[in-house]
């Protein structure tokens, strides 16, 4: 592979990223590159900075120093860069964050209309396509509160997909779900992964990580401690903190 191939296929890069919340050092010297089609699972103890890291990628958080490049666009603090990056990056939250006063269909059609300038009919056609994709088209006219957690999360995935992003970020998408609903959401994510979507998932679903991830990254206290392919990561973690963490996680599952 030539150098230019390398940059071509690189979708996300974080270089020497530092993030502070006031006096609290939330991200410390984060370096990370994600190639097109790669699936990354990000794990680590509570408060280790996982959410902060992925939220920096779509500029829900700003950084103090370092450089973030997404889909060839450097985040230079300009509104244009923010817009461009948010069009390429979809995000799914732990608490779904669907708009409760809109139907499922309206939830999905809003951004295509406002961001991509589509007419209502076109946006709704697109919305139906992605609702079908997550197998929930039959609920299109309901309000979020009328759906189960698993269904709401699939709607949230469809809503993000409606901008046809190159990258999907997931922040503990199954943590708020009843156990019996976790599978339907993970299955949707697995199917996205199979279609070649570039994904960064913060999750403690280690089965998902084994099945889907190209790389597992372990964070603690704002640092990337260890990163490896799932097989290596789960069977022979190098760092003491990773071992402790894995012990705790696996004991729970």
């Amino acid at each position: 592979m030539t150098a230019s191939d390398n940059t071509q296929s690189m979708l996300i890069s974080l270089e020497k990223v530092e993030k502070w919340y006031g006096a609290f050092h939330a991200l410390k010297d984060i370096n990370l590159t994600v190639r097109k089609g790669e699936k990354i699972v990000l794990c680590g103890p509570s408060g280790s900075g996982k959410s902060t890291l992925i939220r920096c990628i779509n500029v829900l958080e700003t950084i103090e120093s370092g450089q973030i490049t997404v889909a060839g666009r450097v985040l230079d603090g300009s509104g244009k860069a923010v817009d461009a990056i948010r069009r390429e990056v979809g995000m799914v939250f732990q608490n779904f964050n669907l708009f409760p006063h809109m139907t499922v269909l309206q939830n999905c059609a809003l951004a295509p209309m406002r961001v991509r300038g589509m007419g209502r009919a076109e946006a709704e056609t697109l919305a139906r396509k992605y609702l079908e994709r997550v197998r929930i088209l039959d609920q299109a006219d309901k309000y979020p509160a009328q759906l189960s957690g698993g269904q709401q999360q699939r709607v949230a995935i469809a809503r993000a997909l409606c901008l046809e992003p190159k990258i999907m970020l997931f922040d503990e998408p199954t943590s708020a779900l009843d156990p019996e609903m976790v599978k339907e959401v993970l299955d949707t994510m697995i199917s996205l992964a199979r279609d070649g979507m570039t994904m960064i998932c913060v999750t403690h679903e280690m089965g998902f990580a084994r099945q889907v991830a190209d790389r597992v990254i372990f964070m603690a206290s704002g640092e990337i401690i260890e990163e490896a392919e799932p097989d290596v990561f789960f069977t022979s973690p190098k760092h003491e903190r990773t071992k402790t963490f894995l012990g705790e996680i696996l004991a729970h599952h």
């Binding site: 829900l60 948010r86 901008l163």
Partner: peptide
């Protein structure tokens, strides 16, 4: 809830749409 603004931001919605479509209808209720 703050998550509503975050979701709107993540979708790339700008101020006017964020307020008019997402926040104000919920706030008025």
């Amino acid at each position: 809830p703050k998550g509503q603004t975050e979701a709107a931001n993540a979708l790339g919605l700008h101020y006017v749409s964020r307020m008019k479509d997402v926040i104000l209808p919920q706030a008025l209720k």
